[in-house]
């Protein structure tokens, strides 16, 4: 069953690639047909990805080491792709602006592609990782990251489609509002993620905050988005600056997610040695 789940994940990756191409065609050629096809393919990819995650969960139980599939980088990337798809599809249902897919679904594809380059084996959990708070932590963090990913995609779209030239146009206002709304969703979930993470740390190590680089970077990300939310109350920060801000914020998210492990662990041996 583990093998089956992994094969499905490969198929899902290519489906996301196909969806990305279709959304890009839809955006480039303004063609309804491509748009419908892109949505259909994305829904299919999402459904099958959900199935693969459930299969992986079941497989871990059959192996006698049952745990929710959110425990390592591979599983988190797969779940990240899933959360991006969920939030994007909700936005599509609400706004019917399919051009957004051209900027967001490629992110789901890239997350899956990265996952495929890693070892997919299901491994037993270390004692410190056995906690329901950890599951809540991973789910909230990644939904939050997906909110930020989509706000950054919207920010890129805002800049790439030249909305800054006419920031008072209805389309620019809708995009601006969507950037803000997705940041709000991301911010609430990131906050919940940091809180559940510190509850977990408190029960595992007796300290809710220890300023390790990963924690600190999540706080940096949080502070950047907190200042973005306050920039709304200062004149002149809507529109283009907001779009750029959402990209900077997502840069912090990416660094928190990947950069800390890849770049800082050389200096901080304890960054990886804790769990």
């Amino acid at each position: 069953m583990e093998a089956l789940s992994n094969q499905i994940l490969v198929a899902v990756t290519f489906t996301f690639m196909a969806a990305s191409v279709l959304y890009l065609c839809h955006w480039a050629f303004k063609s309804k047909v491509f748009g419908w096809a892109a949505s259909g393919v994305t829904w299919a990819a999402f459904a099958v990805l959900t199935l693969a995650i459930i299969l992986r969960w079941v497989a871990s139980h059959q192996m006698g080491i049952g745990h929710a599939p959110f425990s390592n980088l591979f599983e988190s990337l797969v779940f990240f792709a899933w959360t991006i798809a969920v939030i994007y599809l909700i936005i599509e249902l609400v706004t019917w602006m399919r051009a957004i897919g051209a900027f967001t679904i490629p992110l789901a594809f890239l997350a899956m592609l990265y996952a495929l380059s890693l070892d997919p084996a299901i491994k037993p959990l270390l004692p410190a990782l056995k906690s329901n708070w950890l599951i809540a932590h991973v789910i909230t963090c990644f939904l939050g990251y997906a909110g930020f990913a989509i706000s950054a995609a919207l920010g890129a779209m805002y800049l790439a489609t030249g909305q800054a030239k006419d920031p008072a146009s209805p389309r620019a206002l809708v995009l601006d509002n969507l950037i803000y709304q997705t940041v709000v969703v991301g911010f609430i979930l990131l906050t919940a993620g940091i809180v559940t993470g510190s509850i977990w740390a408190n029960s595992a190590w007796g300290t809710y905050w220890s300023w390790d680089p990963k924690e600190t970077w999540s706080l940096i990300t949080w502070l950047v988005y907190a200042s973005l939310l306050h920039s709304r109350f200062m004149r002149g920060w809507q529109g283009k600056r907001m779009a750029v801000f959402s990209l900077v914020g997502f840069g912090c998210v990416l660094f928190t997610y990947f950069g800390v492990n890849l770049l800082l662990s050389g200096l901080h041996s304890y960054a990886t040695g804790k769990s």
Binding site: W211, P213, T216, W217, L219, I220, L223, V224, A226, S227, H230, S231, F233, M234, C252, V260, L264, L267, H268
Partner: peptide, 23 residues
């Protein structure tokens, strides 16, 4: 709010230093 905007960003930027220099 300008001050809080500035302070929040300042804390973010300064915190980066603590992740680059081992503590």
């Amino acid at each position: 709010v300008k001050l809080s905007f500035f302070l929040l960003l300042l804390l973010a930027v300064l915190s980066i230093a603590g992740t680059l220099i081992p503590q």
